[in-house]
């Protein structure tokens, strides 16, 4: 028995264009239309995907999840690609399967007005991510520079015996670190607010650990925005400007996109 794995929903496109790619279970990716929208799907074996075995795998087999989730993403990204432009789509969360075509069509019918409205809202907008990494040492140095208390303390330390000075310095460094943590919050807020002005919507994502990013600098901010096509240039310019302006204070901005609008549906 075959089931239908649903990747995303979008406005009706040219019925002659084909996906030419394989989906999550090796089945051809194709379109099921309903009125002025269409669902991007591929067939999956219900024997495999409906069973307890697959649920167990999804719970425990990371490699399996990684592979399948990547395939899901590939199909969604392909569906987003129009002729020279980004189509607005509603990407589904991983793992929604219908037992029959009829059931899927019923669902399309049931939520039709909701889907239409969401697609309308997303029209001409793209999801972009901006991640900020921080060189803590450079940042702490900046914080030290602007703190009169720290300046004073460090002067004091200079005249202390070496051993005592060692511990005093440790304490000052700790205090600077704490101060820097607080300042960092404010910087983060202002970056977000600043970029938010160029966008239709914004949210914050997970801070990924160094082990995950493989970068030498830690991530301190993960922002996700929904950007209108016509404001995209200005948005990217602003990210580049922030990057340049705040580099001396240890900040490093990286942007990526366009993503399917997973965060804004």
């Amino acid at each position: 028995m075959k089931g239908f794995y649903l990747y995303c929903i979008r406005d009706r496109t040219d019925p002659n264009s084909k996906f030419l790619m394989r989906g999550i279970n090796g089945g051809k990716v194709f379109i099921i239309p309903y009125q002025s929208i269409e669902a991007t799907v591929s067939e999956v074996s219900l024997k495999e995907f409906g069973s307890d075995e697959i649920q167990k795998r999804a719970q425990e087999d990371l490699k399996w999840i990684k592979e399948k989730a990547q395939l899901h993403e590939k199909v969604v990204e392909r569906a987003m690609k129009g002729k020279g432009r980004v189509l607005s789509i509603i990407p589904m969360k991983f793992g929604t399967i219908f037992k029959t075509k009829k059931k899927l069509e019923e669902t399309l019918k049931k939520y039709y007005s909701k889907f239409k409205k969401t697609l309308e809202n997303l029209k001409g907008k793209q999801e972009w991510g901006v991640k900020v990494y921080l060189d803590r040492q450079a940042f702490n140095k900046e914080i030290k520079k602007v703190s009169p208390v720290v300046q004073e303390k460090e002067k004091e330390i200079a005249s202390m015996p070496e051993g005592t000075a060692y511990f005093m310095q440790k304490q000052v460094d700790d205090a600077v670190s704490k101060e820097a943590d607080k300042a960092l919050q404010n910087y983060g807020e202002s970056f977000f607010e600043n970029l938010r002005k160029y966008t239709a919507a914004g949210t914050k994502g997970k801070i990924l650990e160094k082990e995950l990013t493989g970068k030498s600098l830690p991530m301190v901010l993960n922002m996700i925005f929904l950007v209108s096509e016509e404001k995209l240039k200005g948005f990217i310019k602003e990210v580049n400007k922030l990057n340049k302006e705040y580099k001396p204070r240890g900040f490093n901005f990286e942007y990526s996109g366009p993503w399917p609008p997973y965060n804004f549906i």
């Binding site: 089931g3 649903l6 929903i9 219900l46 995907f49 409906g50 697959i54 649920q55 999804a58 719970q59 999840i65 990684k66 989730a69 990547q70 899901h72 993403e73 969604v76 509603i90 990407p91 589904m92 969360k93 991983f94 793992g95 929604t96 399967i97 219908f98 037992k99 059931k103 899927l104 669902t107 939520y111 969401t118 991510g129 991640k131 994502g205 997970k206 990924l208 995950l212 990013t213 493989g214 970068k215 990286e254 990526s256 993503w259 399917p260 997973y262 965060n263 549906i265």
Partner: peptide, 26 residues
């Protein structure tokens, strides 16, 4: 690397949820 993690995060956690007949529970 970061893009891969981003993609996995979005696919597994975000995205529209509608009730199908089978939902793979991650």
């Amino acid at each position: 690397k970061v893009t891969l993690i981003d993609a996995l995060d979005k696919v597994l956690e975000k995205g529209a949820v509608i009730s199908g007949d089978v939902a793979i529970r991650v």
